[in-house]
Amino acid sequence: MKIQPQSVVALTYDLYTTDNGQEVFVEKATEEQPLVFLYGVGMMLPKFEENLSGLSAGDSYDFHLHAADAYGEKDENAFAELSVEMFKGMDLPEVGSVLPLQDNHGNQFRARVTNISDSAVNVDLNHPMAGQDLHFKGNILNVREATAEELAHGHAHGADGHSGH
């Protein structure tokens, strides 16, 4: 079966970014711990899915995504200053640490601490991979039709269609 909307895909990948012209390994999904997802429902980067369209189990892939097609370019305005008052009663975070935050609409996101002063904690609200080109290499392990339950829930329930609940 070929990868198409409403199919569940299990795959391995090695993900690299480029730093000063050198490829840097970021993370991977293995045969023992594959990435399993419902294709075509917006869970994955659109260009990631586009590059996998029509592949079948046993196929390998190797493609690059420009930053604009991945997590976007770095937004120089996506920085914020949080008052140290927000951290009253707890230790101040360290530079480089990631804070789980929530906006007024309940949307959750992560912010990386870039600087700490006596009055403020400065954070970068960009996705950690914003501004980076991505290189994916891997193999398609399995492609199957999604179950009615998976389609109703909008996500895959594992490589075999059964959730571990």
Rank of each mutant, 00 (worst) to 15 (best):
L45D: 00
L52F: 09
S53C: 15
L52S: 05
V36F: 08
F48A: 08
G54Y: 06
E50H: 14
Y39G: 03
M43G: 13
E32F: 06
L52W: 01
Y39M: 13
V36Y: 05
L55T: 00
V41I: 14
G58Y: 00
D62W: 08
T30M: 14
G54M: 06
L45S: 02
E50V: 07
A57D: 00
E32C: 12
N51W: 06
S60A: 13
G42T: 01
L35M: 09
S60G: 13
E32V: 12
D59S: 02
Y61P: 10
G40V: 13
T30V: 15
L45M: 06
F48D: 01
P46A: 14
V41H: 13
G58R: 00
F37W: 06
Q33Y: 14
A57Y: 01
S60I: 05
L55K: 01
A57K: 00
F48N: 03
F48Q: 09
E49H: 10
G40I: 10
G54F: 08
V41Y: 07
P34D: 07
Y61A: 14
F37G: 05
L38I: 01
L52A: 03
Y61L: 14
E31M: 13
M44K: 08
L55H: 00
E50L: 15
S56T: 10
G54V: 05
M43V: 05
E31A: 15
E32A: 15
F48L: 11
T30N: 08
P46H: 04
E49V: 13
L35D: 08
D59G: 03
S53T: 10
P34A: 08
G42F: 02
L38S: 04
F37D: 04
M43N: 09
N51S: 14
M44S: 07
T30H: 10
D59P: 01
N51L: 14
L38G: 03
V36N: 06
G54S: 09
E49D: 08
T30E: 04
S53G: 11
Y61R: 12
S60P: 10
S56M: 13
G40K: 10
E31P: 09
G40C: 07
M44T: 03
E50G: 15
L35F: 03
V36Q: 03
S60M: 04
Q33L: 15
Y39F: 15
N51D: 06
L38E: 01
A57W: 02
S56K: 11
K47H: 06
L45T: 01
L35V: 02
V36D: 07
Y39V: 11
L38P: 03
E49I: 05
D59T: 00
S53D: 07
G54K: 05
G42Q: 02
G40Y: 04
G42K: 04
P34Q: 03
K47Q: 14
S56I: 07
K47D: 10
E49S: 12
G42R: 01
L45Q: 03
E32I: 12
L35S: 15
E50A: 15
F48T: 03
K47E: 13
L45F: 06
E50D: 14
D62N: 14
P46L: 13
P46M: 11
A57R: 00
E32T: 12
K47N: 08
E49W: 06
T30Q: 11
E31G: 06
A57Q: 00
L52N: 01
Y39P: 06
E49A: 13
A57L: 03
S53I: 12
S60N: 10
S60W: 06
L55G: 00
L38V: 02
